[in-house]
Design a protein around this nucleic acid. Structure first.
Lengths: 160, 160
DNA sequence: GTCTTGCTTGACGTTGACGTCAACGGAATA
DNA sequence: TATTCCGTTGACGTCAACGTCAAGCAAGAC
């Protein structure tokens, strides 16, 4: 009746999934704790189905695009609750659009920060070139040369 | 002997600085706790000088470009410790370059996430257009229409 | 005198996504 | 039989940057 017919009815252990998706048992148990996964059991041991694996994949993809676990759970909860795929997609669509807006804003913020930082770096290099041209090429090495004395003592020049 | 001569020797209360920089007393006390600020006292009350104000400004600007308080403190610690401005600038220069690299990486990640999200949105819209074209224009409103029955029940279509 | 305002300290709470034990069980291997 | 590996369930710890109380002092306004 389902499309599972053609799949081997295999299952996964917790560590198998962890290896496959490069995560940890603790994480999977955490997701379960938070209601994003609910694998079967054999005794105490967790037994993950293809379905669980698919859910995990969605969780990780969601995370990779910045969705919070709670949001992913919201989407997941619609799945298998009788309203089918369309509802899930509609919900996801909203979440995704929100995420897109947030990410674009964030990207703009990063752009601003980069501008500031680059200007500040330019200022500081120029300053350093005037005052201490000797330590300009590898300013990173300055730490090991801190004993060098300096002449004046004014206000700092970075970030103006 | 210093350039302070031409400034009125005014001081600031904690709330004045908070208003000016749109932050909170709790934050300033927190910075002090973490060693980024050390205002004078009149009895118990904190008294901030121009110098403290400048430090605060640097703290906030540092934060705005994504520096952690600990990093800002590292930079600040060089200031007034006998090695003057050059050392501080060199240190800051390193931090800033690190930040630039991190931010650029982050921006690329965001770009990837946006690509994924946009493709997913396109997929879902197409899917929705086929299955439920009625709720396509304002998918955001779908929540209130969940009672609508759906036909089939397949695998989810988003994020492939 | 008391009310308000502003300041203080100290301590615990928050948020998210886990990490890190401790203490145990069952199965396979040497 | 002993070791090792994989698994389990709690429960507490972590990180950052504060927020949110509680409890109290000190000065000025009414």
């Amino acid at each position: 009746m389902t499309s599972e017919l053609r799949r081997p009815a295999r299952t996964f252990t917790i560590r198998q999934l962890c290896r496959e998706f490069e995560t940890t048992p603790r994480a999977l148990r955490f997701y379960e704790d938070k209601g994003l996964l609910s694998p079967a059991r054999q005794g105490l041991n967790r037994v993950y189905s293809y379905r669980d694996r698919a859910r995990l994949q969605l969780i990780l993809r969601g995370k990779s695009v910045g969705l919070a676990l709670a949001e992913i759970r919201e989407i997941l909860e619609l799945y298998g609750k009788g309203d089918g795929e369309a509802a899930q997609n509609a919900k996801a669509l909203r979440k995704f659009r929100e995420r897109i807006v947030a990410l674009e804003r964030q990207r703009i913020d990063i752009g601003h920060a980069l501008e500031i930082l680059q200007k500040a770096c330019a200022n500081m290099e120029e300053q350093l070139a005037r005052v201490r041209p000797d330590l300009l090429p590898q300013a990173e090495e300055y730490d090991r040369m801190v004993r060098a004395r300096v002449d004046g003592h004014h206000e700092p020049a970075f970030m103006r």
